[in-house]
Computed example of a mutant assay.
Amino acid sequence: MKVSDLGVIRLFTAVLAAAGLAVSLAAIGAAGAPRNALIVQGLSAVLALGLALLVGRFWRRARWRLWVLMAACGLALVLTLMNGVSLEGAKRWLALGPIQLHTASIVLPFAVWAFAKGFGDRRAAPIAALIAFLLLYQHDAASSLAFALALAAGALVERPRQLTPWACVIVAGLLAYAAWVAPDTLPAVPYVEGLLANTMKANPVLGFVAGVLMIGLPAPFLAVAQARPERRAEALALAALWTGWIAGALFGNYPAPVLGYGAAPILAWGLSLGLVLGDSANQDPPAS
């Protein structure tokens, strides 16, 4: 069935989000999460809903300079490398009081969205390559893979005539490979990185449902790509981003996005949804 209405996609997404939150709370509880983790997870979902509505309402009405937006994303990663929380050599988090936010989760949806819309600006692709380098130095193979897949998806849809975006895709792919072959020394937390395996042991049915819902996270973006051709590049790029994060959880020692414990992935999913499900504007953001 071809989806032709953003309202239908929004309703489907709301059902998916509600089911995901319920299963997430049950899964991280079964995997041994403390009660305060359940509270943080629930509050993060509420905040993500607010961000999705806010971004969806106002984002496309702003006249963004896309290369500036990407540069701001790169700057956030630089600040994380300089002043972020370090664990076993990895610097992926910024401390906000008692909460540690995974920076890449927050900034990559914006960077991917800007890259997919910024092929008319030659400044966008080099900044995307810089972001890929920064992800490598953060020792974040899952985000490196996700970002490389997102850049490739955006380029394949738009097929830019310039060589620079294609070179950026190749560089990001090589850096993602380098990130994956590097050893990962971070220990797994049962209700974060090891969520699916530990939930499957505690409750096979719940573990199976959690896995299905996690794999279904890119579905709203794929639906938007089918329903709205003018948003296809950005929607497929975001779908690829989330596919990469899911692959990181399935094949590496990385958090289960949205379903596992952690505020940043939930906020990132809300931001990503706001970017593609938002109200239409009379004019798309300019590339420069």
Rank of each mutant, 00 (worst) to 15 (best):
L53A: 11
A281P: 04
S4F: 10
L79S: 05
A178F: 06
A172F: 03
G89H: 09
D121F: 11
L69H: 09
L16T: 04
V15C: 13
N198W: 05
G207M: 02
A239I: 15
C168A: 15
T185K: 14
G262H: 08
A178M: 07
P255I: 02
R123S: 13
V189R: 12
G118Q: 10
A240N: 10
A176Y: 02
A182E: 12
A141C: 11
I9C: 07
L195V: 06
L250F: 12
L77E: 12
A52S: 08
A48Q: 02
F221R: 15
A249N: 08
F251K: 05
N282L: 12
V40P: 10
V78K: 03
G118W: 06
L66E: 00
L163V: 01
A132I: 04
F12P: 08
L66S: 04
E193N: 10
A26R: 14
L275S: 01
T103S: 13
T199E: 03
L69Y: 09
L47A: 11
S288V: 11
L136C: 01
L53Q: 13
A52V: 04
M82S: 09
I9R: 08
A26W: 15
I28H: 07
T243N: 05
A27C: 08
A37H: 09
L51Q: 06
P285I: 02
L11W: 10
A132P: 00
L87H: 11
V112L: 07
A124R: 11
L163Y: 00
L134A: 00
R63Y: 10
I39T: 14
L151P: 03
R159D: 06
V258D: 04
A150G: 07
L206W: 00
A141I: 14
A128T: 07
A219P: 05
L96M: 13
W166C: 02
E158P: 00
R35G: 07
A225N: 04
V189S: 06
G56A: 03
G50C: 07
E234Q: 14
E193V: 02
G89I: 04
A237Y: 08
A132D: 01
R65G: 07
G244H: 10
R161E: 03
A281D: 00
R35C: 12
L174C: 13
L134K: 03
G154V: 07
A111R: 04
P34N: 04
G118V: 09
A240G: 15
